[in-house]
Simulated assay, not measured.
Amino acid sequence: MSTATALTGVIPPVCTPLTPDFAVDTASLTRLLDHLLAGGVDGLFVLGSTSEVAYLPDAHRRVVLDTVVGHVAGQVPVLAGVIDMTTLRVLDHVRAAVDAGVDGLVATAPFYARTHPVEIALHFRTIAAAAGLPLYAYDLPVSVHSKLPGDLLLDLAGEGVLAGLKDSSGDEGGFRNVLLGRRERDGLAGFSVLTGSELTVDSALWMGADGVVPGLGNVDPHGYTRLYRAAAAGDWAAARTEQERLVRLFDLVTVGRGRMGHGSSALGAFKAALYLRGVIAHPTTAVPQIPLDDAEIAAVGKYLAAAGL
């Protein structure tokens, strides 16, 4: 079920604050939501990669859904990740998200078992038929091990199955081909094409992307909304200046690399930055991710200071 108008703007993938004993910290989550809304964001994406969805049990997912939908209360659209290995498992998450009252759903291709494009298409068609809400495809081959073919995405959009794409593939040529295909095919004006790259938003918007889903937007939502508004106004010099400041800020994700995996370092850095900014109470990440130590958290603080935060 697609939408008549493409979703646009800055839609951060919301971090999931945790207590030291790994429960969802709902007080910190509501502060984070207020921080993002005050930053002028155009929507919110919960239960994605930056939300640590792969680490959260189903009960945690439901707490996040109920907290976010209840607190946001329709101020901006809320998209919910329904990410799991196979279609029947995803449908359980669809039912929970629809019951919570979200505005749209985000799903990856199936994973663990490698799938053929025909199976991926069936996966998305089945989800869309069950949900009755706009469904956005999440292209994340680094985790899912399947690259979503551009023609398949556009075909599904033409059928009304997909309302949009969040592209975190890193394949900028493929991303541009999706934008070109949308322009060349009839009836796809409402198909929203969003970049998941924090570092090339100005380029993606110049190519014709509708918006951005930036993990770093948790830390600096104002920066991404300034970037988007500048691009929308055609002020590409201002957009480039803001993008370059955010590129330097994004280096905070490297503070733990070498002692831990890239995911632990990046998600730990986002949460450390939110902790240092007084938004969340604890920088806890879900196990088995490795927590940042005091020196690494202090290094995150230096990046914040350099960025004017």
Rank of each mutant, 00 (worst) to 15 (best):
V300R: 03
T284N: 04
V193I: 15
R257D: 12
L267V: 10
D210P: 01
Y275T: 11
T195Y: 04
G208L: 01
D210N: 13
G268D: 12
S264W: 03
A231K: 07
A231S: 13
G223M: 09
R277C: 03
V219S: 05
T195F: 05
V247C: 09
Y228R: 04
R245P: 07
E244F: 12
D220E: 14
A232E: 12
G301Y: 02
T285Q: 11
S197Y: 08
E242C: 11
P288I: 11
A281I: 08
V247H: 05
A269W: 01
A233Q: 14
S265P: 10
L205Q: 06
R248C: 07
W236I: 04
A295R: 13
V300C: 03
G223N: 06
G217M: 08
L246Q: 07
L276F: 01
A238T: 14
A233P: 08
A233Y: 02
L267E: 06
W236F: 03
G261M: 07
G196N: 09
S264N: 04
L205P: 05
V247Q: 09
D210S: 06
L252D: 08
L292E: 08
V300P: 04
A209C: 06
F250G: 13
V247G: 00
L267H: 07
A239H: 01
L194P: 00
A286E: 12
I297F: 00
D293Y: 02
A281F: 01
I290R: 12
L205N: 04
R229S: 12
A272C: 06
V213P: 05
V255I: 08
P291H: 14
K271P: 08
L292W: 03
A286W: 13
V255R: 08
G223D: 07
G268Y: 07
R248Q: 15
T195Q: 09
K302V: 11
W206S: 13
Q243I: 09
G234M: 10
L194E: 02
R259A: 15
G215R: 02
G211Y: 00
P283T: 10
